[in-house]
Design a protein around this nucleic acid. Structure first.
Lengths: 213, 213, 213, 213
DNA sequence: TATGAATGAGATTTCATTCAT
DNA sequence: AATGAATGAAATCTCATTCAT
């Protein structure tokens, strides 16, 4: 199913072309990640993929389309990731450990794909002003919300204390996502002065103390 | 002091020009906020400010320069805001109340200026790849870190429990910023389904339970 | 009414720009006339108008749009021309003389604008295959038919003889148009070996003997 | 004689190839006919012929070359057609009948090949501006004139009346061609509202009353 | 000061043609 | 003979910036 592609003018993509297509996708991820969507030129991508302008447009109708596919792919990965998080409420005592392991996986994912997510933000603000959705980028508009909805129930363990106000699970998940994303973003852009495991430890601490009670 | 400006070709800006300049600044904030930096055209700004292209370049040497100024301004406001946060450790019992009040002020600020912050992110990724720093945007690069440094010590009250790992104040502040920023962002973009006070309440809850212990 | 124009981004065109616009229009006519629509490059037009690429797109959103306006203009001229043809049935005996005078006017028009009409044909076949009318060229699709309808009744004087089959006026006018158009076309492309007045004379003869009986 | 072809690189074309070649030719006629020369893409032709780009260039050195061959073929047919027209001056009384029969044949030809002729016009204007005659399209430049020369003498029977000016046979033939061509063109594009035989009848009438006297 | 017309470098996209299989 | 992936020259169009008034 996801193994069948077509060219811009509707022809089936066979094994030979599949490789080129993949190379373009990867080059796109790299270039969008480093330069951002608007600053990246098709030329940069083509050069990185060691192919030609013409070839680019054989496989993607536009720069947007390439990003869109990248984003969709990432969206799937995130959804899977979320689905894979064990219900922390039923991991007796072990919660912190389980969470840490999961955050590690998330970190690996973010290292690979996080940079591209920036391009998503970049596009987003532009596209809601005029709504005609210029041919692409339907990717993840409500993705985050959806993820939060899936994540929420697994997370919040109500505090035993009574007066403590209860946090809505969806909101809590949103908070979690924000924390995770930002932490990795700060780490990636050097604004978070911490080394390897330290980031992971701190993140686990913060998340644990916020959401798992 | 901050009331003395010069035109692109070094002339002093008098009262009439002052107004035009301000109009451009405001228009810029509005346009950058809705369309994002790259998607916004000088033409949009000029139109919103009810003035002409020529006039734009009398007051700002480039599109980027306008954003830069906007960002600097916002940076100052944020710094002030941070300075104004009472030390939560010395507000006995009242902490939650004080925090909520402060977060409300922060929210008002975010409503005014938050959208423009997106443009900052947009620019950021672009500028680290080629290091020549194209004449602008030195504004906030380390702003966040600085704020976090100032915010940290006022926030985290170590839990009395022993085994509980302590969160580094700087990191904690970063987390706070992330939470606040994202919450308002989600609220602004409709991804957070909550009404007026609800957002503020929830945010207070989350922050309180995370950082103020 | 026809004296009010707007630029591509909706601004009023004042006297200063009016000239440039006109120059582009004229250059377009000349270039389309000599090279044909597809072969003509925007670059050719801009060069002929002694202006720049950017300027072209200030006044016209596309190459098509320029042709469209040219064609609309020509359509109006033709309509006027047709309206001005005296009813040949009421010009006793004088018909040939009147017709000749009119054909002379037509000739002058064709000398000015005939070349551009070729571009119309060039576009036409392309646009009916996919019907989405790519942004322009609504100009004259049924123009010819309309003209024929207006022209017909003024022309055909039924022969006094009985057995002679009567030609439908509309059809006859179509024939007339074809004759006139082709004659001038052949004359213009050198396929009709005849000099100045000779063309006019012959054309008058042919038309007269066909349609005015 | 006309049954021997070579590929682009000089190889003899055998039976299998012959078929492919023919299929391309036919596809070309269809596509050029509907979309016009410039708008037609090699891809369209290749698709219609159910073959590949590579194959196209085995048989034709360029897109233009295919049209050129098509046009040459059509030229031959027209020449034959003209040659077959009986001398109307010697068909006593029967002239109208004979003419009608011939026009019918012409109509059939036009139905098959007329559309492609549009592409000829399309190319023509382009090629006179730069004189280097880009390798093709010498096909029909003076075709029309030649045909007219052959057609003329067979047609015009001078009117017995004295004052009536005599129409030059060549010119007259040109007129005839124009009429026939345009009539069918209008009929084909729906601008001539008439059904089957009606077109033929009217055309016969018009031609007869103009040229055969 | 203010204006808006003009500019041109640069970006995206198309498509006839070539080439390796 | 046939294929279809790859190519790159060339064309269209955009928009930040300059300039004459």
């Amino acid at each position: 199913m996801s193994s069948s592609y077509v060219t811009t003018d509707g022809r089936e993509v066979r094994t030979r072309g599949r490789k080129t297509r993949a190379r373009l996708l990867q080059a796109g991820a790299q270039v969008f990640g480093t330069k951002g969507f608007h600053t990246a030129r098709v030329d940069d991508i083509v050069r990185a993929a060691k192919t030609s302008h013409g070839t680019f447009y054989v496989y993607f109708p536009s720069k947007e389309a390439l990003l869109d596919e990248l984003l969709t792919e990432i969206g799937h990965e995130m959804a899977e990731l979320v689905a894979d998080l064990p219900d922390l409420r039923s991991t007796n005592g072990d919660a912190r450990h389980v969470l840490r392991a999961w955050l590690e996986r998330f970190g690996a994912f973010y290292d690979r794909s996080g940079a591209v997510l920036q391009s998503w933000t970049e596009i987003e603000s532009a596209s809601d002003s005029d709504h005609d959705t210029p041919g692409a980028l339907n990717a993840g508009s409500d993705l985050l919300a959806a993820l939060a909805d899936a994540l929420g129930p697994k997370l919040v363990v109500p505090a035993p204390g009574a007066g403590q106000p209860t946090v809505d699970p969806g909101i809590a998940a949103l908070a979690l996502m924000a924390l995770i994303e930002r932490f990795h973003y700060y780490a990636a852009t050097g604004q978070l002065r911490a080394e390897g495991d330290e980031v992971l430890d701190t993140l686990t601490d913060v998340v644990a103390s916020t959401l798992v009670r």
